[in-house]
């Protein structure tokens, strides 16, 4: 870990002006971890924990506004979230451990960085270290021909195959959340689908935030009447492991047919993976095992596995098939 300056911001304006080339810190569950590994070397940490962004409020249009500092535990156990956005509560509770969830925040989870072991290696992207285009563009990708069992099969590029690790984000992708940010140039909103970036040839760019912008809220749209939602996470062990494959489904069934559906996958994509292909295969179709399997085939049609992660293609299909069954039962 490198020496850094620490500043505590008492309001949003002070946070924005005090940032400079530093980083905001909230729960610190990713950032401090990466600082210990010398992956993150911020000159300054601006502590935003006391900002008044820790409320969950109902919006006049029936939606829900989640402050960026709402802890994962508080969000997961919130009565409105459990009732109307069950997929989000389930996703949060499937992630990390109770201790981590008590610290991790909503905004921080949007910024969670990949668990790629090569990315996390202190010397990656430096001469003599593993190639990592995320750490130092142009140095290559050691995961490509390394141990890549947990890596992504969707949204990959020749430059990066790092998996997006968040569970919360998969649920938010299916819920079509909207992210509010505030920065030197003022306030704006970002649609969830536009927030995380595909790696392409710039894997170092992970999201749509401009320099100096702070996430302030996440809005969930009004719940779809009559819809049900489910999150299912598959992994080697029962707890405290990132997803090998996960699925978030929000769906509404009328007369035995699917009338509304949103599908997102986790553990398999370089970003929280909204699957329009699966949705197209489901819309208007009868609730039936064959429909689900067809949607799963569609969702994974573009999958590009590497040497160690080919099993994720079938695992993700089974995961989505089961999630659809649960959400439409």
């Amino acid at each position: 870990m490198q020496t850094f300056n620490y500043v505590k911001a008492t309001n949003i304006d002070k946070a924005l002006t005090g940032l400079g080339s530093g980083k905001f810190i909230a729960g610190g569950t990713t950032l401090v971890d990466l600082m210990k590994l010398d992956v993150e070397r911020p000159s300054t940490l601006v502590d935003i924990n006391v900002l008044a962004l820790d409320k969950i409020e109902k919006l006049p249009d029936g939606g829900l506004r989640i402050g960026a500092l709402v802890r994962n535990s508080d969000l997961a156990w919130n009565a409105d979230v459990q009732k109307s956005y069950a997929v989000l509560s389930q996703a949060l509770l499937s992630g990390a451990s109770p201790q981590l969830r008590n610290m991790a925040t909503t905004g921080g989870n949007l910024m969670q960085r990949t668990r790629c072991a090569y990315f996390r290696e202190p010397s990656a992207g430096t001469p003599g270290g593993y190639g990592c285009n995320k750490r130092t563009p142009g140095t290559g990708c050691a995961a490509m021909d390394g141990f890549n069992r947990t890596h992504a099969i969707l949204g990959t590029s020749d430059h990066c195959i790092a998996t997006h690790p968040s569970d919360m984000c998969v649920a938010m992708a299916a819920l079509e959340a909207v992210i509010h940010v505030e920065g030197p140039k003022g306030k704006r909103t970002i649609a969830f689908a536009d927030f995380h970036k595909l790696p392409g040839d710039t894997p170092q760019v992970e999201n749509a935030l401009e320099p100096g912008e702070l996430i302030t809220y996440v809005d969930l749209p009004k719940p779809v009447e009559g819809a049900r939602s489910v999150y299912l996470k598959l992994r080697d062990r029962a707890s405290y492991e990132f997803a090998l494959a996960s699925a978030a489904v929000v769906s509404k069934v009328e007369g035995g047919h699917i009338r509304y559906v949103r599908v997102a996958l986790g553990g398999v994509g370089t970003k929280p993976w909204r699957s329009h292909e699966a949705e197209a295969a489901l819309n208007g179709k009868p609730v039936h095992a064959a429909t689900f399997r067809a949607a799963a085939e569609a969702a994974l049609a573009a999958a590009k596995p590497r040497s160690d992660n080919a099993f994720k293609v079938e695992l993700a299909k089974r995961c989505l098939t089961r999630t659809l069954k649960l959400a439409t039962a």
């Binding site: 593993y130 050691a142 390394g146 141990f147 080697d236 062990r237 405290y240 492991e241 990132f242």
Partner: peptide, 25 residues
């Protein structure tokens, strides 16, 4: 414990990546 074939590093050398039994298991 998985060793990277190029460097010989135990590449999953952390408690998040090297899986041991949890209480839930």
């Amino acid at each position: 414990t998985v060793h990277d074939p190029r460097t010989g590093q135990p590449i999953n050398g952390s408690f998040a990546d090297y899986l041991v039994t949890t209480c839930a298991d």
